[in-house]
Amino acid sequence: MSGRKHSGFAAVSALCISMVGAFVAFTVSAQQAAQTRNPHADVLSLGGSVTEIVVALGQGHRLKARDATSTYPSEVTDLPDVGYVRALSPEGVLSVEPSLILSEEGAGPPEAIDVIRAADLDFVEIPDALTAQGILTKIRTVGDALGVSDRAATLSSEVEAALADAIADAERPEAEKKRVLFVLSTQGGKINASGTGTAADALIRMAGGVNAVTEYDGYKQITDEAVGLAAPDVILMMDRAGVDDTDHGGADDELFGIPAIRLTPAAQTRSVIRMDGLLMLGFGPRTAEAVRSLNAALYGQEG
């Protein structure tokens, strides 16, 4: 009788041990799977287009903080703001205790980035983009850093197709293309305008326009004579958040009253286009939308 009791007890013990082992194995497996799916739960995104990509990949829930240029989609503005992407402080960035920083190329200042890179966390720089392929590289780089390469591949395919269609639809004969001057600022009546090699230049060309200034690269303050020689048909500027039509009217009067612009073809027809800065210059997942929007504004077509 005692042998049967002992045998029964041993069987129960073995079953319990087996169940505990299975539970432990299941727990470890679940933890490993979670780590694989979510290697970084606390992500700091620096750069508006980088943040857009994170959200577009379905990883917005992993964002712990963002920079001041990250304003789309609107829900990201509820996150802590560590400052302007090109004027960061190491203290502000590290205070949010991210485990991963995704930073657009050109974040700064350089000495601040050096300090941040030296901290015990992962720092991934996302390359800048001025072409369709560049945008796809940005998406794949963010996807790889977040451990969601498959989702990035899907998003890349969608963005590539949408952008190719938008650019094809925007094509026009050279003789019909409008000359566009992108004005970054008009402080003190001085025109700071885009030359070549900028996001503004790339978008103007994608949208079927011609950049009116090609004599230099980047953004530069130009003379009144240079503005006159550029002879823009349209002035393109970043929109100011929160302004209404009345304010736009006043802003147009001020713009076209500047001596450098007053005699241009754009001033004669009061042709100015204002677009959201991040949509226009971010070169992220919404660039096809930006191309269609600018093309429609230039030529009165449906976007």
Rank of each mutant, 00 (worst) to 15 (best):
A161F: 02
L155Q: 01
C16L: 15
G209D: 09
Q32D: 05
G21N: 13
R274L: 00
G47D: 15
I235V: 15
E160K: 09
Y84V: 04
V43W: 05
V243Q: 06
A164P: 06
A118C: 09
A170G: 01
A11V: 15
E302M: 01
D252K: 13
P90F: 00
A34Q: 10
A164R: 11
A162W: 11
R274Y: 04
L163A: 12
I53W: 02
D67F: 13
M275D: 02
A161V: 08
L57A: 14
P90V: 12
G106Q: 10
M1S: 13
E174P: 10
A119F: 10
A112N: 05
L88E: 14
Q35V: 03
T154F: 06
A296N: 05
D239V: 01
A212S: 15
L88S: 13
E171P: 04
Q133P: 03
L294P: 12
I258Q: 00
S103P: 11
R62K: 12
P265R: 08
V124S: 02
S99L: 02
V28E: 09
V272E: 04
M206F: 15
C16M: 15
L100Q: 12
T269E: 13
T264P: 02
Q59M: 14
I53K: 02
V55R: 06
V213M: 12
F123K: 03
Q32V: 06
A161H: 15
F283S: 09
K5R: 11
I113R: 06
V291T: 02
E174N: 07
P173Q: 11
G208Q: 03
E158N: 13
L298F: 04
D244N: 14
L294G: 01
E91I: 00
G189I: 05
L146N: 07
Q301M: 02
E111T: 10
S156P: 05
R4E: 09
D150P: 00
D201I: 06
L281I: 11
L63T: 09
D67A: 10
A132V: 14
R240G: 00
R62A: 11
Q133R: 15
V50S: 07
G197C: 04
E97Q: 11
D165Y: 06
V213E: 08
F26I: 05
L102R: 01
P259D: 13
I113W: 09
V20M: 03
L79E: 03
R117F: 03
I17K: 01
S74R: 11
V210T: 13
G21S: 07
T27G: 08
Q32Y: 07
E91S: 04
Q221I: 14
L294C: 12
A199E: 14
R66E: 02
Y84L: 06
G303L: 12
P265Y: 10
D252H: 15
S7P: 00
R274E: 07
D201R: 00
L294K: 11
A170E: 05
E158K: 14
R4W: 12
L184Y: 03
A41T: 13
V227Q: 00
A226C: 15
R86C: 07
Y299G: 09
F26R: 10
L46P: 12
G218C: 08
L121P: 06
D217C: 04
